[in-house]
Design a protein around this nucleic acid. Sequence first.
DNA 1: CAGGGTGGCTTGCAAGTTACAAGTTTGTTC
DNA 2: GAACAAACTTGTAACTTGCAAGCCACCCTG
Lengths: 126, 126
Amino acid sequence: MTSLRSDCPIAGGLDMAGDRWTLLILRDMFLGKRRYSDFLSSSEKITTNILADRLAKMERAGLINKKPYQDRPVRHEYRLTPKGRALLPVLQQMSLWAARYVDGTAAPEDALMNRAIAPSRPVSVL
Amino acid sequence: MTSLRSDCPIAGGLDMAGDRWTLLILRDMFLGKRRYSDFLSSSEKITTNILADRLAKMERAGLINKKPYQDRPVRHEYRLTPKGRALLPVLQQMSLWAARYVDGTAAPEDALMNRAIAPSRPVSVL
DNA sequence: CAGGGTGGCTTGCAAGTTACAAGTTTGTTC
DNA sequence: GAACAAACTTGTAACTTGCAAGCCACCCTG
């Protein structure tokens, strides 16, 4: 996770978010989840150690940040940074692809698809 | 790889292509590579056992197919299926994201970006 | 103020996956 | 028939994942 395999942007992207869980946590955040227990409740059943590890790595990678929402006891919530939010089109395209080509997957969720990130970037822009 | 974690299309997509190498092999194919030795020569330096394993899994997943291009000795080449080709937009969005947000990555390659798959699908279509 | 419950982790460990190196097979070229 | 090459396969150590259990701080109830 700490060094890139090459300067290819695809390799770089995969080095930061190319595992089985990171993009699913991102998806949950786009759907409004913010707390540890929210992420645990998703239907893919991530385990606690992996969730804690991924949240820490994602924070170090600048995809999310962590802020206390209460003291006593201190509890944190996790939110997308602009860098994390900018991965939405990747999630959208992945959804469209799987919904069409992978058996047993449902249609993409409207909440993910009907959403744009700030400066929207069409595919064939410079 | 054989069963899906949920019916979410993102989870489905990740179950098929959410690892450190599959999308890089796909990228190489979009750039015209077809042979085992072509894939080995990429700058990320995939090792032979992983390459062989990934090619076999991708074939089973229907992303690519394998055909002999000569006998004596039999040699195969690998080509994208329509299902594999349809992952191009995912690669494109990943490239745009990383080029913009990941330090040390180069600009997306024109050969990948200036390319459309047959029925092009804008993001916010049903 | 003891006992149970809850949210958010941490720890331990077995099983699976990856990386690196070396070897094998099939045929071709000198 | 020796060297070479493409395309794998095998062995093994290191790392990552999945599963279960434990832990700590705090609230809540009696």
